[in-house]
Nucleic acid binder design. Structure first.
Lengths: 142, 142
DNA sequence: CTGCTTGCAAAGGCTTTGCAGAACA
DNA sequence: TGTTCTGCAAAGCCTTTGCAAGCAG
């Protein structure tokens, strides 16, 4: 296992702190995966992450990518976005926001909270509580 | 292949007409699947449909259920609902509406259009057009 | 008859898991 | 040194596909 020579925008110390804040023991693989995701808000599948990290040298295995992403979700570091039956997207933007999903390109992009006004939410079913509201605007090329 | 002795609420003639209106050649299997879905608004996975139809006698094969559901989606008879990475739900309610998804029970239920007020939609990305807006309120048992 | 449909079994794609070796504290 | 983590390969799950037999018109 070789580390990438240089970390991106978010430096290693920041990534380490972020992981620790979420009670995630930082290992080299976890730092790499977190760095990729946290560099900027993006929507990557497990396979995207695997491909990007191993572009030069093998850095991380498929099993570890999946295990790590599940850990990150569990610890609230990233969110799953379910818009395509074939793959799960992992979203490092944990602010309240929504998504455009381009069915032609498979590209997912953010809609900021302020850009949508949602009023008049319905009553929840008995004995349930809301976890979150997902809004996906499906679009296609014109 | 044996047909079920009695069709549910929506009678066979209505189902046949509905299929024809959607330019779907009615076969015995398609009528069975459509009957199940169109009896009432419901959210079934391919596996649910397979299990329910074959409860007594083998009526339809797995391959045909999948092929038929894809055909129904293509022809606009039902809609896919993607909320769970493990399976696709097929929704026979084609009116404008939204969903509650109970992550504890895996149960999907409808929210009528009037119960949500959505204003102020964001600008679409360049050269794209909207296909639809999906809203899923994720809930859990309290 | 002729083309479309069905069903079986095999294949595919994404994700999870078992387990042995490696890393970490 | 004990625990946790990693990685390989195998297994699992849902869905699709190839192809021969069956059905519809």
């Amino acid at each position: 296992m070789k580390l990438l020579p240089n970390l991106p925008l978010l430096d290693r110390v920041q990534v380490l702190n972020t992981l620790r804040q979420h009670y995630i023991t930082p290992t080299q693989q976890r730092v790499e995966i977190a760095s990729l995701l946290l560099t900027q808000y993006q929507h990557l599948s497990a396979d995207d992450i695997l491909a990007q990290l191993n572009q030069r040298h093998p850095i991380v295995s498929k099993a570890t990518v999946y295990n790590t992403l599940n850990l990150f979700v569990e610890k609230g570091l990233v969110q799953q976005v379910i818009v395509d039956p074939n793959k799960i997207f992992y979203d490092s933007n944990t602010n309240k926001h929504y998504h455009f999903y381009n069915v032609d390109t498979g590209c997912l992009s953010d809609i900021e909270d302020e850009q949508v006004t949602l009023t008049h939410l319905p009553h929840l079913p008995e004995k349930t509580q809301a976890i979150g509201v997902d809004i996906v605007i499906r679009i296609r090329n014109r």
